[in-house]
């Protein structure tokens, strides 16, 4: 299955907006938090667990429409995709760098306490 036209219909955009705002921290990943199917997804899960952050995990491997739509919605071509406070934060590299610098903890705290 391959999308040539835009996968992001107005309805899907609406659904995604609700989804990224359904929890303060939402991780779109390959697999689940308990069974990550890719090392990059696993890295972000481990970081969030390390910070003890409550988060919602969404397995994009189970929904091709969601997967294609999200790439456009985030303007980001790969997974995992981390959303904090309803905003796209970044993929694995950005999350790892922000974790190491302490920035991630600040952003998460700000979102959760707002």
């Amino acid at each position: 299955f391959r999308c040539s036209a835009s996968a992001l219909t107005p309805q899907l955009r609406d659904t995604l907006e609700k989804l990224v705002n359904s929890n303060k921290v939402v991780l779109f990943m390959k697999g689940t938090r308990d069974f990550p199917m890719c090392g990059f997804s696993n890295t972000v899960v481990q970081i969030l667990k390390n910070l003890n952050v409550p988060f919602e995990d969404v397995n994009i491997l189970e929904n091709e429409m969601l997967r294609q739509g999200l790439k456009e919605y985030s303007n980001w071509p790969t997974f995992p995709q981390l959303y904090i406070g309803g905003e796209f934060f970044g993929g694995c590299d950005i999350t790892l760098e922000a974790f190491q610098s302490g920035e991630l903890q600040e952003v998460v705290e700000r979102a959760i306490c707002s």
């Binding site: 071509p77 790969t78 796209f88 934060f89 970044g90 922000a98």
Partner: peptide
């Protein structure tokens, strides 16, 4: 910002991605 920089790299590789 870092996110924008990464977006520039992704955009530069749009075809390859």
């Amino acid at each position: 910002r870092l996110l924008e920089r990464h977006r520039m790299v992704n955009a530069a590789l749009e075809e390859e991605m």
